[in-house]
Simulated assay, not measured.
Amino acid sequence: MDSKQVQAIAPARWEARRWWSGIGAAEVMLLLVAAVWGGSYAVAKQATQQLPVMEFIALRFGLTFVVLLPALRPLFNAQWHQGLAVGGLLGANLLAIFVCETFGVSLTTASNAAFLISLCVALTPFVEWWLLGQRPARRIFWAAGLSAVGAAMLSATSPANIAVGWGDALMVLAAFLRAVMVCMTRRLAGHHTMPALTLTAVQSGVMALGAMAISLVASNGAWHMPPATASFWWGMAYLVLLCTVFAFFAQNHAASRSSPSRVSLLMGSEPVFGALIAVYGFGETVGVWGWAGGLLIVAAAWWVTMPQKLEARPRIP
């Protein structure tokens, strides 16, 4: 093969390598998290019908903390106080997100909830700009807008179906807090040396204690025993092991290795997975308008994982 043929083939191979270079283990983990969380809505809804919301949150994250107790070993060093401070701050933020989400879903429709929580995708570039002082690339704003439009189409058969109420307001607040969470995790990554699993354990402990305290105060000390049904505990196992242990570990791991906007855009594919699980797992129907919106979300998520621009091609003598 002469030099001219090599020069003709090399650029194509170089572009192919650059095309996939934006997708790494962190991005794959985030897509798996979106898939797992997409199936959590029905499970959590069934569980909260059998146990009060705050007690459900306390039980879920208390079990998660117990499962992750071995991961707390890195805390027992000279910087334990710093690790607890970071984990406590992020855990408090995460508790606020779950309180807003759980009560918000109970006060609005599932489709509205899926759309409004996905506003995290559109809000993150602005929160990143505000908290980190890093103005995202122009295409991040375009992709965020595209994802938000897609989420709106996915959650409604027509624009007229989107309504605003107290539940909607709580979901918007949860979306904003999610964006803050991603940016805070990124900002605090350099202030501690905790592994992602240790950070998840600390967050879970803070959430369990916080939810328990709120529940006891709100109910004047009353507490309910969790149901003994197999469906409840199978659902709890799914929520603890997959939706919490794996998902939060993956998110903490990826948030310190990828930009906040990219993390949120990939997590913005969650409504698509939720729709697929609802259709094939629970017999729900999604119209053409909704599937078109899902494709927009997927397109935006893939767009943001691609390298911003191709590096200079190496010259072959």
Rank of each mutant, 00 (worst) to 15 (best):
C120Q: 10
V99N: 00
I117N: 12
E101R: 04
F103V: 06
L119A: 05
F98M: 13
I117M: 09
G104C: 10
V105C: 02
L107C: 06
L131Y: 02
V127Q: 11
W129V: 06
T109H: 06
L119Y: 04
L116E: 00
F103W: 13
A122L: 15
A113D: 03
F115L: 12
A113V: 01
E101Y: 10
W130F: 12
N112M: 07
A96W: 02
A122D: 04
T102Y: 01
A110K: 13
C120I: 01
G104F: 09
L119W: 01
L119S: 05
P125R: 04
L116S: 00
L123M: 15
L119V: 04
V99C: 01
L119T: 08
L123N: 07
A110P: 02
V121C: 08
W129C: 09
W130Q: 06
S106A: 15
W130A: 14
V121N: 08
F126V: 10
F103A: 00
F115N: 02
V99K: 02
E128P: 08
S118F: 04
T102D: 01
L131W: 06
P125H: 03
S111I: 00
A96P: 07
T102M: 10
L116A: 03
L123S: 05
L119C: 11
C120Y: 11
L132A: 12
E128N: 14
A96H: 00
F103C: 03
S111K: 15
S118G: 15
T102S: 10
T109W: 08
L131A: 04
A122E: 05
I117A: 10
L107Q: 13
F103H: 11
S111R: 13
C100I: 01
L119G: 02
V127D: 10
L116D: 01
V121A: 13
F98G: 02
F115C: 03
V105Q: 12
S111Y: 02
T108G: 10
N112F: 03
F126C: 09
V127W: 08
F98C: 04
L107D: 07
P125W: 02
F115D: 07
A96S: 15
L131Q: 07
P125N: 07
T108H: 11
L95K: 06
F103S: 01
S106P: 10
E128R: 13
E128M: 14
F98W: 11
P125D: 03
S106M: 14
S111E: 14
T109M: 08
C100H: 00
S118N: 14
L95E: 05
I97M: 03
N112Y: 04
